[in-house]
Design a protein around this nucleic acid. Structure first.
Length: 262
DNA sequence: ATGGCTGGTAGAACCAGA
């Protein structure tokens, strides 16, 4: 059976519900993991997803900021949810499919402006978040997919200019090292780079501030789909929907979709 | 020329994103 899993930082699921529907109609992933839903659970637009056949969901929302949601066309049950900062922010929800596959939907903190925890506490919180994820990741079973906005672009070819971004939060060596430790903790396979090997350019985010995002192409690969080794062996395809950056009222992130033959 | 923008919320000379 073929299974498709999409992930997308939507930057408000209510404001961008039209382009969410566009993804559902034209790409119809079996499972859609959203980050930055920016909505309380009691105001989540469940009816619109149900109209498109997405009758199952696990959501972890909060007021104003952050928030994650996993929507599905096939039965889905909540597995767990973690608050790795222990500050009440909604940045993770886990789910399990009938075949046992676990889908972990994560929104790693952005980390603020300055890559120095002594003057910018948010940067230290980001590193601590990833370290606590690493301890958790070690205990997961080998039938897991972890997706989301990790807010770290690890490789030189994951950013538009490696040298220019070495001191910019999202691509600093200490963040890249923390992400590498997380990846090693469960032998996670980075499906983006499994299907699009370095040094090919691969981005999932472009700033709203560019006059012409496609012309300047100052992108970063901040969003990821990782699979445990057994799940990765079932992966058959991977796609970044770069054109979604031009859809009406776009998110600054674009969706990516992985296909598995399970 | 890495902030030139953006949404949510309040009703900002705001916050957060990255």
């Amino acid at each position: 059976m073929s299974l498709t899993i999409a992930t997308w930082n939507i930057n408000s699921v209510r404001f961008r519900i039209d382009i969410v529907e566009r993804l559902l109609m034209h790409h119809a992933p079996d499972v859609l993991c959203l980050q930055e839903t920016k909505v309380m659970d009691d105001a989540f637009p469940h009816a619109i997803f149900a109209d498109h056949g997405y009758h199952y969901s696990v959501i972890n929302g909060q007021r104003m900021h952050h928030g994650v949601a996993t929507l599905s066309k096939i039965p889905l049950i909540e597995d767990n949810r973690h608050d790795w900062q222990d500050n009440g922010e909604a940045r993770h929800v886990g789910a399990r499919l009938p075949n046992g596959l676990r889908i972990e939907n994560v929104y790693v903190p952005a980390g603020g402006d300055t890559p120095d925890a002594t003057v910018n506490p948010k940067f230290g919180q980001k590193l601590a978040f990833v370290e606590r994820m690493t301890r958790w990741s070690e205990s997961l079973s080998d039938d897991t997919v972890i997706v989301g906005d990790f807010n770290i672009a690890p490789l030189e070819c994951d950013v538009w200019n490696h040298k220019a971004l070495l001191d910019v939060v999202s691509h600093t060596p200490v963040e890249v090292a923390a992400l590498a430790a997380l990846q090693q903790s469960h032998d996670w396979v980075d499906l983006g780079r499994h299907f699009v090997p370095p040094p090919e350019r691969l981005f999932t985010w472009w700033s709203y501030r560019a006059a012409d995002w496609r012309l300047s192409d100052r992108g970063r690969r901040l969003d990821h789909i990782w699979a445990s080794p057994a799940a990765a062996r079932a992966a058959t395809a991977f796609e970044v929907l770069e054109d979604a950056r031009d859809w009406g009222k776009p998110s600054d992130h674009v969706p990516q979709i992985a296909t598995f033959d399970l």
